[in-house]
Simulated scan of single mutants.
Amino acid sequence: MTAQRFRRWNIGILALLLAGLVCFGVVEGVALPRQDQREAQYTADQNSPITHDIARTAHYATPYMGDASKVTGLFRSLPLGSIRSFALDPDVFTVQVNLDSSTPLADRDRDPAYLYSATAAFAYVDNLEAVIFNEGAVAYRVTREDLLTWYGVDGFSAFTRDAAVWKTAVQSKLEDAEYARRAFQELFHNTQVLSD
């Protein structure tokens, strides 16, 4: 009876070991690669204004553009491409984003990226009045007032209260390349830079 009991004990241990190996294989071979793939796709989506998750920028909201860490963090979290540096002018409530001119955005990518990023900046930085995107050879300025007129609203706070509102009012419209091109032509004007 002891030998039979010992044999059942060994079979039970072997069955548990096999079940553990199967579970380990499923986790390592299926679940973790799928999770890694989803995370990689999410990260890639953050580089496009059409797929960017605006909710991830909410913690950069600030009432004052003088909060440099939040303002720069906000712009770095937006789909703008490579940013070289920033210049802040609190006297005229303007932020200048100095982009890496060695890797410029194509017009079809630039137009929605600038519109999306400027809208997010005005929505999350309460006293910001203008944004300058400095590409090195040329700089473009957009104002809060012009964007409010473009969207036909009195303020941007309603856009960021709910991600669905942001998607409808801002993001989904950027899928239309003509809309983004027209917005860029009407809202973003050549300007002098604050500093380099």
Rank of each mutant, 00 (worst) to 15 (best):
Arg34Ile: 15
Gly66Ser: 15
Val71Leu: 12
Gly155Val: 04
Leu80Glu: 03
Glu135Pro: 01
Phe86Gly: 02
Phe24Ile: 09
Tyr124Ile: 02
Arg84Ser: 07
Ser77His: 03
Ala180Thr: 11
Tyr124Val: 03
Ser102Pro: 01
Arg84Gly: 00
Asn127Glu: 07
Val97His: 02
Ile83Phe: 02
Phe188Ile: 08
Thr168Leu: 06
Ala87Glu: 03
Val92His: 02
Asp176Cys: 07
Gly12Arg: 05
Asn134Arg: 09
Ala130Pro: 09
Ala58Gly: 04
Glu178Ile: 10
Thr43Arg: 13
Val95His: 03
Ala55Met: 11
Ala130Glu: 12
Ala19Trp: 00
Gly136Ser: 04
Asn134Ile: 03
Ala137Trp: 05
Asp100Trp: 01
Gln185Ala: 15
Arg8Gln: 11
Ile11Asn: 01
Ala163Gln: 11
Ile11Ala: 01
Tyr124His: 12
Val138Pro: 00
Val170Ile: 10
Ser195Leu: 01
Val92Gly: 00
Asn47Glu: 15
Ile11Pro: 00
Val71Trp: 05
Ala3Val: 05
Thr72Glu: 11
Phe6Gln: 06
Glu39Leu: 15
Val193Glu: 00
Thr143Gly: 07
Gln4Tyr: 08
Ala61Lys: 13
Ser101Ala: 14
Glu129Met: 11
Arg110His: 08
Leu99Trp: 01
Asp107Asn: 14
Ala58Pro: 00
Leu128Thr: 10
Gln171Met: 06
Glu28Leu: 03
Leu148Tyr: 14
Arg38Leu: 13
His59Ser: 14
Ser85Gln: 08
Val71Ser: 06
Phe93Ser: 12
Asp126Ala: 15
Tyr64Leu: 15
Gln4Val: 04
Ala15Arg: 09
Lys70Ser: 14
Tyr116Glu: 11
Val22Asn: 02
Ala177Val: 12
Tyr114Pro: 02
Leu21Ala: 12
Gly136Cys: 03
Gly25Leu: 04
Tyr116Thr: 09
Thr143Gln: 05
Thr51Asn: 12
Ser157Asn: 14
Asp67Gly: 03
Leu194Gln: 02
Ala31Tyr: 14
Pro79Tyr: 07
Ala121Ile: 07
Thr2Ser: 04
Val131Trp: 01
Pro63Tyr: 12
